[in-house]
Design a protein around this nucleic acid. Structure first.
Lengths: 133, 133
DNA sequence: CTGATTTTGCAATCTGGTTGCATTAAATTT
DNA sequence: AAATTTAATGCAACCAGATTGCAAAATCAG
């Protein structure tokens, strides 16, 4: 249940937050702030913005920079702690502009040049998604 | 010589373009539009913008979305055709905010779920760079 | 040199992201 | 349950980066 999911992450379950969580839950693809704003009637951009920030801080959702210019958000898996083990590949469809979490593919470890220490990474594949092909 | 490098890519070698190319050539790290604007006295943002667009279209430079909010640009290697074989990893330093091309590390090929066809990818590692560590 | 084409510079606009602040809602205390 | 404290919301305003229209200037071809 949504209320519980918020409480588990120490987020006060207000009406707005429940709506946003439900919306993200029901979406197969990651959503941007403006997409949420469009989808949810009489919602306020600033409220949505702060809602997403809070959700992200408390590791209920993660943000994805898919290169489209606007940041997308998607629900984390239940036990997610948003550290490197939880990071996964994303796919951005150049036709429908949807962005998918490929949760079962992690980011490969690569040996960087001496002196470069990495603690996170962003890997986005671009092309044509299942629905558009 | 810079003029030749432009001509080879079918870009008319104007004064401004030579200056921008020189600046990118001399920079060890990728540069954003606003960084260029700051660095180059009495330069115009719109001109720089269109210069970078033209350079990118004609495959003289490539753009990097490092997640910092502004797109960075870096010179391509001489024979670059900007297809998947030329794509490489980038590194974004969270301390000095510099972004480096790691030209000798390509993007790993991963098997995506059925129906997802990728033709390009963006892989950015974040952490602390050589100069900052 | 002259006309055609491209580039430049300036101002203006757009979009996504972000903040200040007063109001409202929720949680806590009495 | 009322009072008090604390957090969330809604509105307007702002900001930065990206982008465009347009007239003036520079470049190129004949």
């Amino acid at each position: 249940m949504f209320e519980n999911r918020l409480k588990k992450r120490n987020i006060r379950p207000t009406a707005m937050r429940l709506i946003v969580l439900k919306e993200l839950y029901e979406s197969e693809v990651a959503m941007s702030l403006s997409e949420l704003e469009l989808k949810l009637e009489n919602s306020d951009k600033a409220t949505l913005y702060r809602t997403l920030k809070k959700f992200e801080e408390n590791q209920l959702i993660h943000s994805i920079d898919d290169g489209s210019g606007s940041i997308k958000y998607a629900l984390c898996d239940e036990g997610c702690t948003c550290d490197s083990k939880d990071q996964h590949v994303h796919f951005h469809c150049e036709k429908c502009l949807s962005t998918y979490c490929i949760t079962n593919i992690g980011i490969p470890q690569l040996t960087l040049p001496k002196g470069f220490i990495s603690n996170s990474a962003n890997l986005v594949f671009k092309g044509i998604c299942l629905s558009c092909s």
